[in-house]
Design a protein around this nucleic acid. Structure first.
Lengths: 225, 225
DNA sequence: GTATTTTTTAATGTATACGTAAGTGAATAG
DNA sequence: CTATTCACTTACGTATACATTAAAAAATAC
């Protein structure tokens, strides 16, 4: 962790970041309830900025504010994941198409190529977390190349949800070696401006991921009962 | 408008509804700035619930809170509309596919059929506003039939943005008589469970709408300069 | 022992107060 | 006349206070 993190200036911003981190880290587990006053005390501020942060995160689908019950961290069921992946599939493959239509310059494509290379390296080292990071970067960069800020926003929201289930799915999943072939094909299609190809391949890629993840989550859910 | 509107109970909820209405009605024009205290005074409440409402609406992309500059109602440019329609196109046609795959019962299809019939009636009467209402209902119902709550949420958000430009586009647009043919074809495809057909037709429908609207907005923008 | 009513508790929704700092205008120097 | 500085205004961010009311607990009746 470098010192270059942009420190948010307002307590509300700090609360948003802190709560997000706590949710992703599992400090605030899915399904758990938390009083505004408890969160405020934990974050060393008053209820006001905590409420404002919670309102924002509620809009992002991470939690729910229920009168008298406190802030509830929303769980992500296999059914939710199916919904989320369906949205991701459509919007990311739209982004792939848009990116291909745009014919990005070589410079713009660098981060995408780097993400693919990093995944290869991580795979060779069996570094699953490193792979997941690079994979996330690939998808983020792909969507950025699409150039549609609404798509970026929605995909980011959905990706956040996926990220929350990652700890469950990542280590149960078979080595994602085939995955990088798809990434490379998408990259090539974008580079050569073949929009339909970029769209089709990425779509199939996401659909396969969805089936895998949903199956894993359903198995995991059963094993937890 | 009937008396059956559910009256929101908290001032925050009231503020959300009131501000939305004011934005859609043009009382808060796109691009305008408004102090929190002014809005609070206008709504007869303190700044607290107004801020909470603004936070929520900011998350929905309707406005922006800028320190010391007040609440800015976000304008919707032709470029924005292109982005929005691209998202709508993908997600609504996904919903059409999902709806067809679900094979909804006859009862579930009633609202969709009614919306189509209402559009016919409104068209015959040259009642443009009535047509727009029914059209909106058709799209809302279609998405509901898809059964993906995330799709519903995102589409609702994007539709809100479209609605804001409606006053500009609605009365400049050629009589939307061809439009209802598409609706009927989508309806038939859903009823017969032809998912690919439902998807393809609705996709083309939306894409055509996008091209029309974006062209209108660009022309309108030019004429305003 | 169970069900119903009453009392108590406490979390929220909202108003209010106030310190901070951005923006504005006046005043002064050049 | 222009530019710079300084004082001032004021909108926001946040803490705090408090009324409301839902939920929990206790008390009572059966």
């Amino acid at each position: 962790m470098t010192q270059t993190d942009t420190k948010p200036q307002s307590n509300t911003q700090r609360a948003i970041h802190a709560l997000r981190e706590m949710i992703f880290a599992g400090d605030l587990p899915a399904g758990s309830d938390h009083l505004e006053s408890e969160l405020a005390a934990h974050l060393g501020m008053s209820r006001t900025p905590v409420r404002e942060a919670a309102l924002t995160l509620e809009g992002q689908g991470l939690l729910e504010m229920r009168p008298r019950k406190g802030v509830r961290i929303l769980p992500v069921s296999p059914g939710d994941m199916r919904e989320i992946y369906d949205v991701l599939t459509e919007l990311e493959s739209l982004a792939a198409r848009l990116a291909a239509e745009r014919q990005p310059s070589k410079d713009e494509l660098v981060p995408l190529a780097k993400a693919i290379a990093d995944m290869d390296v991580a795979l060779a080292k069996s570094d699953l977390d490193g792979w997941a990071d690079a994979d996330e970067r690939f998808h983020t960069e792909l969507v950025r190349l699409g150039g549609n800020s609404r798509v970026q926003m929605v995909v980011a929201m959905m990706s956040d949800q996926v990220r929350r289930a990652r700890s469950i799915t990542l280590h149960m999943r078979p080595p994602p070696s085939k995955s990088n072939e798809d990434h490379r094909l998408v990259y090539d299609a974008i580079k050569s401006g073949d929009a339909d190809q970029a769209h089709a391949i990425h779509r199939a890629h996401r659909q396969a991921a969805k089936d895998l993840i949903v199956a894993l989550l359903e198995k995991h859910k059963l094993s937890r009962i």
